[in-house]
């Protein structure tokens, strides 16, 4: 069986992460699984987790009054879910639902924040990686906005 620390170190989001950081992060982590159709998180609820997706697929949904709910993005193996745990008010801005049986590593948000405050090198490392993903998602959103298939 793979140890939690090894699973974390082998996830693409943490590729080439210093072993001491992987060890620190492991203290906040647990293995989780979701049946297809269940929600990992819901809009408005407290954002206390950060997920590394290992298997499966997760749909991010937005509900707008008088309109049908839509899926704005799907995330799969090797991707991450959620950064609302990082900044106040620590609330989710969308729903996330497993569309396939999904396995992930869940980190406790407050535990991560505390470790990052105590060890700024770890915090900077984590932020750099998160900023990279945010950049990619922002670019993808821009392409969605310009309606590239029109």
């Amino acid at each position: 069986m793979q140890t939690l620390e090894r699973i974390i170190a082998e996830h693409p989001f943490f590729s080439e992460l210093d072993a001491q950081y992987a060890q620190l992060l492991t203290g906040c982590a647990s293995n989780v699984r979701f049946d297809s159709g269940t929600y990992l998180l819901k809009e408005g609820e407290g954002a206390n987790e950060f997920f590394l997706i290992r298997h499966g697929s997760v749909a991010l949904e937005i509900f707008a009054p008088q309109r049908k709910p839509i899926i704005i993005q799907t995330l799969g193996a090797g991707e991450i879910l959620g950064w609302s745990w990082l900044l106040p008010p620590y609330r989710w801005r969308f729903h996330a639902r497993a569309v396939e049986p999904t396995r992930a590593i869940s980190f406790h948000g407050k535990c991560l924040r505390t470790k990052c405050e105590q060890n700024h090198d770890l915090g900077y490392e984590l932020l750099k990686r998160l900023a990279g993903v945010m950049g990619q998602r922002l670019e993808a959103t821009r392409l969605q906005l310009i309606d590239v298939y029109a």
Binding site: S57, A59, I70, I71, G76, E100, A140
Partner: peptide, 12 residues
């Protein structure tokens, strides 16, 4: 680019 809730494929 955007899916309804019945869509189980990729969105993005």
């Amino acid at each position: 680019d955007s899916g309804d809730l019945g869509w189980t494929g990729h969105v993005g």
